[in-house]
């Protein structure tokens, strides 16, 4: 389990400017819908944007704090 603040912190650790919106899909604090906006996504295709977020959350996914997640990414315009 992890709370939305924990998820935001993990994402901001690698994407400091990120705007993060987290929705707990099941109330069990391990199935999340996460939307991330960041300037760092500029010029990257959607797959690579999602790879960046997965990398930021890798540890929490591997140790089971996050069981399943849905991602949406958007470029934060400067």
């Amino acid at each position: 389990m992890i709370d939305s603040k924990g998820i935001e912190a993990l994402i901001r650790a690698t994407l400091p400017d990120a705007e993060v919106r987290v929705v707990d899909l099941t109330g069990t604090m391990d199935h999340y819908d996460i939307r991330v906006r960041s300037k760092a996504f500029a010029g990257k295709n959607r797959l690579d944007q999602h790879r960046m977020v997965y990398a930021a959350l890798e540890e929490a996914r591997r140790d089971g704090r996050i069981h399943a997640l849905q991602l949406k990414t958007e470029v934060l315009n400067v």
């Binding site: 790879r51 997965y54 996914r61 949406k72």
Partner: peptide, 21 residues
Amino acid sequence: TNWPTLPKVFIGGQFYGDTDI
């Protein structure tokens, strides 16, 4: 695929991630 989750979708031999993509 440098993609950690399932499902993984391929179309015409190209990788396209999942329904989030």
